[in-house]
Design a protein around this nucleic acid. Structure first.
Length: 777
DNA sequence: GCTTAGGATTGG
């Protein structure tokens, strides 16, 4: 066989051994020590003729002397070479050559006593993955490079595999089952590969050592298998581990560093291999459908399967056939999640952390064959759990049951658990994210920060079943005009306004991407839109009003009872609360409207929790009056009601007494607004949808109170769950990171209208009579 | 001691 140079850089030979190999001294070659990634270097002082063993195996023996230990009593060692490697070596190795051996097996030398050499000998063979490098073949000096006697590997394309052969091959991972405990004695991993020949090969890999199996973390990874046996099974070629099987795994991302993941066995890896990996990456990028962004807990939905990259926070035994894993990924699941009851003493993990993360961790119950592996997992380790099943027992019931996370028994669809090393890029990203999570924030359901909303939902889960449904049906439905035919966007763009159309299109993109920015306040009288004031604005108005002390002459009238007190703090603030009566009686707090003077933001907010309506007021000489309309004039439940500054003409508070006198005052915001001379502002969603249908693209505005999303715009700000629901809806209508082909269809009703001003005339489009399909929300 | 699994979800 031709002897090859180990490495050639810029046309020049260089002395070079793989950098992962470290030199080992003769005296350290001992049984029980780990010689992985070690090499031994010596000079050939003796070699024997090539012979055959009883079973026909070629055999070649050489003796190496350790030049660094010439003074030692024992300074030489026997090297036994088997098989094809014996033949190759016999052709090139001569006395005086400097040799490096790696990937050897070490065994007791039966001849040590007679020959006076090292007590062990080294055994090398191609099957064991051994490598021999020879230095100075032609010029025995240290300027010449080492030359490799390692076999020149030939890689078989997947369409040229033959039954009964042992081959080397490259492939892109199309499917895999992470290593799991088989029913026999070994770990098993099933891997399906494809290559540019477009032929698939499913390999069944066994090994008692978990590390010997390929370290595949995701579809799209690239593997190099050495010495895999090919067999025919059910009319198809199948790969199966044979003696000396070795695997390297690479990240399949174009442009990522080409660093093999391996169980640190000795391996050859040269420029040529690097090129192969890069070529396969490029091929895979355009020929293999690799799923989009990974699922996050914030993106889970009931009744789906997904892979989760997460950190293990706690674990506990449950019973013989199931085991509990408590994990987090820094995002919050939008649904209530189930908690598996376990004995406190069975729960492993840091108590403080478990408590801190209680609202962010989810309980995953793993079953049967996964239990053994789950038990062995270390707290704090990073996992990828494949094909978790989310289940909701009675989703239709009045009381929504929590989402359950199951890792069912068996290994269908690659179901299983993989431990990711800290060096994994996904783990690095996750770690950075986990460190950035503000724990205080996640504890309070009502303080859903916009950062969380923006950040975590972009990675929505990419689940096939959902996608399929979206591709077949429309994700939106019409609430009227079903008899109308669809019109192509191109036709609409070429027509004059105003008109109405039914369309079928895809949502290419939308604005604003930060959904909370889509909420505005709308005045139906003057048609103006304004931003929703934030808490600081309200606080400012309240502080301003607190300067005026309550006028006690206005206390305790025929239609309200008043209480007043002074705060104990330095400010000595005076607070008055007026409880509106009905039939001269105070009502239950949940039916009561009250007015407050001199309260703070926090106090007002607290009162809204207990009482039906809260109206912040201040005293004048002869009546109570509303505050500035920058502040809400009414708070009911979680909703702040605002009035239009332009269209309102506030009336004295006593105008409310007429409602109080009603038989059953309902305290409807519209009614209160009317009584107080307030033009009520409506909460609306305003969004711009860019719709495409293959014939053209147009921007259509969505102007919606509640109908489209089936979520009241007024409640979005204060309802964490609704925010998430809306985000999920948008993720379904326009899944992030998808190609156009994979976007779902929307059935919409739109109307065109003209907007003219002095300089220009423009046609606008607005969506109406359309709602998100029932199974999408 | 020479098998194990051989891709194709849903139970607890």
């Amino acid at each position: 066989m031709p002897v090859q140079l180990l490495k050639i850089i810029k046309g020049k030979s260089e002395t070079s051994l793989p950098s992962h190999l470290q030199k080992e001294d003769l005296q350290h070659l001992q049984e029980g020590l780990d010689h992985t990634n070690k090499y031994f270097q010596g000079i050939v002082i003796l070699f024997y003729p090539l012979t055959k063993l009883g079973d026909g195996t070629d055999f070649f023996k050489i003796v190496l002397q350790d030049l660094d230990n010439l003074c030692s009593r024992i300074n030489s060692i026997n090297i036994l070479i088997y098989g094809k490697m014996a033949q190759d070596c016999a052709k090139v190795i001569r006395r005086g050559d400097t040799i490096v051996v790696a990937g050897f097996e070490l065994a007791k030398s039966p001849t040590a006593r007679e020959d006076g050499r090292h007590g062990c000998h080294l055994e090398l063979s191609e099957e064991a993955g051994s490598i021999i490098y020879v230095r100075g073949l032609l010029f025995p000096n240290f300027i010449m490079p080492f030359q490799s006697v390692a076999p020149k590997y030939v890689y078989t394309p997947l369409n040229h595999l033959k039954d009964g052969t042992v081959v080397n091959l490259y492939g892109v991972v199309k499917f895999f089952k992470p290593p799991y405990v088989s029913k026999g004695t070994d770990y098993c991993s099933v891997v399906t590969l494809v290559d540019p020949s477009n032929v698939k090969l499913t390999c069944t890999l066994f090994n008692g050592n978990l590390d010997a199996l390929p370290k595949i973390y995701k579809v799209g990874d690239i593997v190099r298998f050495h010495r895999i046996k090919i067999r025919e099974y059910n009319g198809q070629m199948q790969g199966i581990t044979s003696a000396g099987f070795a695997a390297l795994t690479f990240d399949g991302t174009v442009g990522a560093p080409v660093v093999p993941r391996t169980s640190s066995k000795v391996y050859t890896f040269m420029d040529e291999e690097q090129k192969t990996i890069e070529e396969l990456r490029v091929w895979a990028a355009s020929n293999l459908s690799i799923s989009g962004p990974a699922a996050k807990l914030s993106g889970v939905q009931p009744m789906l399967f997904f892979d989760l990259t997460c950190q293990l926070v706690g674990k506990a035994k449950v019973d013989g056939s199931s085991f509990l894993l408590k994990v987090w990924d820094g995002t919050k699941c939008p649904y209530p999640t189930w908690k598996v009851p376990v004995e406190a003493r069975d729960l492993e993990g840091e108590k403080v952390l478990l408590h801190q993360l209680r609202n962010l961790t989810v309980d995953i119950l793993v079953y049967d064959n996964h239990v053994q592996l789950a038990k062995s997992l270390k707290i704090g380790s990073f996992l990828r759990i494949y094909s978790i099943h989310t289940k909701q027992s009675n989703a239709d019931a009045e009381v929504v049951s929590p989402i359950e996370f199951h890792l069912h028994g068996g290994t269908c669809y690659g179901r299983g658990i993989g431990v990711l090393p800290e060096s994994n890029p996904d783990v690095k990203e996750l770690k950075a994210f986990l460190e950035s999570v503000d724990l205080a924030d996640s504890q309070d359901m009502e303080s859903m920060s916009s950062v969380e909303l923006d950040g975590t939902f972009n990675n929505v889960t990419d689940l096939e079943s959902h996608l399929q449904r979206c591709q077949q049906l429309s994700v939106t439905v019409l609430t009227d005009h079903q008899d109308l035919n669809n019109t192509e966007l191109k036709t609409i763009l070429n027509s004059t306004a105003p008109q109405q159309y039914r369309i079928r299109a895809k949502l290419r993109t939308y604005k604003p991407q930060k959904l909370h920015q889509s909420i505005k306040l709308h005045c139906s009288k003057c048609n103006s839109l304004q931003e929703v004031p934030d808490g600081d604005d309200f606080d400012f108005v309240l502080q301003g009003s607190a300067i005026t002390a309550p006028n006690t002459e206005l206390h305790n009238t025929s239609w309200y009872d008043s209480v007043m007190w002074t705060t104990q703090d330095q400010k000595q603030r005076k607070i008055a609360i007026h409880f509106v009566k009905h039939d001269e009686m105070l009502q239950q707090p949940e039916d009561t409207l009250l007015m407050i003077e001199g309260g703070t933001l926090k106090e007002v907010w607290k009162l809204t929790k207990r009482f039906k309506c809260v109206i912040p007021v201040r005293s004048t000489e002869d009546d109570l009056e509303l505050l500035d309309l920058s502040a809400p004039f009414l708070l009911q439940g979680n909703i702040k009601y605002y009035g239009c500054k332009r269209c309102s003409t506030p009336k004295p508070i006593k105008s409310l007494s007429s409602i109080a006198a009603e038989q059953r005052p309902s305290w409807e915001p519209t009614e209160i607004a009317q009584a107080l001379g307030i033009e009520l502002l409506q909460y609306v969603f305003i969004m711009k949808f860019t719709l495409v249908d293959g014939t053209g693209a147009l921007n259509a505005y969505l102007f919606d109170h509640e109908k489209f999303f089936q979520i009241p715009a007024s409640e979005i700000f204060t309802n964490n769950f609704l925010q998430q629901k809306m985000q999920m809806t948008m993720n379904t209508l326009c899944p992030p990171g998808r190609k156009l082909d994979d976007l779902p269809w929307l059935e919409c009703f739109i109307k065109s209208y003209n907007v003219r001003d002095a300089v220009k005339h423009q046609v606008y489009y607005q969506i109406f009579d359309t709602t998100v399909a029932e199974d999408v929300v």
